[in-house]
Amino acid sequence: MTYRVHIRVVPRAGLLDPQGQAVEHALAVLGFEGAGDVRVGRAIELAIDAASPEAAEAAARKMCERLLANPVTEDFSLAVEG
């Protein structure tokens, strides 16, 4: 079975995120009040052939730990579809 996996990678909380700060500033300039704590990360989507959703999630987790996220600076979360 093929599972669609949605992965979010964001800068670790507490770590300086200059992109997030720039976006936050731009939002304020545009008049969007009350938007704060902006973090800019990346979204990765992929399809995994696996026997179960659990197996797909385990595989995706390994991919994140090994390549898709930097354990020093980033946190990730993932969701398996279907």
């Binding site: 800068p11 770590l15 300086l16 200059p18 992109q19 720039a22 930097n70 020093v72 600076t73």
Partner: peptide, 17 residues
Amino acid sequence: LCEAHLLPGALVRNDRL
């Protein structure tokens, strides 16, 4: 070298982008 964990830490986007 940092990505390979041969050196500690990481290099991220310059603070002024």
